[in-house]
């Protein structure tokens, strides 16, 4: 009998096979499949383990899962500076189609952390998603860009990381290890996702001090559930530490198991 890990299928998809994904099949014919939309940049690297754990937990509940990387991120083709918001949404649509084809299940929900949640929200209608679980999604792109700019600026004088301060040129055009394109930057500044039109669970683990207003996303079928421990998304001292949360996995799994 094949183990769960052995059954995981690394795959390439998209118009010319430029997108990378890992498909986690369900043990039996599933009635639901879940698309895991990754966050961006270093958030993707930090939450890789958690996404894998979440995939395993969902499979254990009989749900098929697809993890994937947007063009220009992770193992997908393209350079980091090729990341483009519109393309990310298109990639999400392609991933949802791929998941339907692989799982032979038309009922697809999505999970996304940070900007991955924002992408899932933006792609929900076109991807015919039936439900969303969003973890600290970015709802105000301009504020998010300001925060990333501030973190990048503080890198310049980070004498714990560097033996001496770096020049402004050295740190320009990047966010925490990833080169960014001016177009993508503007796309994020303009980001203000519309409220969801499908059942949505929003998991809130932003620190109390962080600026966030979930009410602007208020929808009739949206629930906001706080996590007990705040997630240190924007803590420069923990920039290279994995983000893990058993509580999040339990809540997300519980929700995705219960709803049709």
């Amino acid at each position: 009998m094949m183990t769960q890990v052995e059954a995981e299928l690394p795959c390439h998809f998209g118009a010319s096979g430029e997108l990378f994904g890992i498909y986690h099949p369900a043990p039996a014919s599933p009635s639901k499949a879940v698309l895991l939309c990754p966050p961006f940049g270093q958030d993707l690297v930090r939450s890789h383990r958690l996404y894998r754990q979440l995939a395993h937990a969902l499979v254990a509940q009989g749900i098929a899962v697809l993890r994937f990387d947007y063009y220009g991120s992770g193992d997908s083709a393209g350079k980091s500076m090729d990341v483009d918001w519109t393309r990310c949404i298109d990639d999400t649509l392609a991933a949802a189609s791929e998941l339907r084809a692989l799982s032979r299940c038309d009922c697809v929900a999505a999970f996304g952390a940070r900007l991955g949640g924002s992408v899932a929200l933006a792609a929900a209608t076109a991807a015919r998603l039936v439900e969303l679980v969003l973890w600290d999604p970015v709802l105000d792109g301009a504020t998010h860009v300001d925060r990333l700019d501030a973190l990048q600026a503080s890198l310049q004088h980070d004498t714990i990381r560097f033996t001496r301060p770096r020049t402004s040129e050295d740190i320009a055009g990047q966010w925490l290890g990833f080169v960014i394109d001016a177009k993508f930057r503007q796309q994020l500044i303009d980001l203000h996702p519309d409220p969801p039109t499908i059942p949505t669970l929003l998991l809130d683990s932003l620190p109390a001090a962080a600026t966030h207003d979930w009410t602007r996303l208020a929808a009739t079928d949206m629930t906001v559930t706080p996590l007990q421990a705040p997630t240190p998304w924007d803590d420069l001292d923990r920039l290279e530490l994995a983000i893990l949360s058993h509580e999040l996995i339990q809540l997300a799994c519980s929700r995705l198991r219960e709803t049709p």
Partner: peptide, 14 residues
């Protein structure tokens, strides 16, 4: 370290 195969800041992909 514990970073998956893409490497820190995608270094291994580059």
């Amino acid at each position: 370290g514990l970073v998956h195969r893409i490497g820190p800041f995608r270094l291994h992909v580059e």
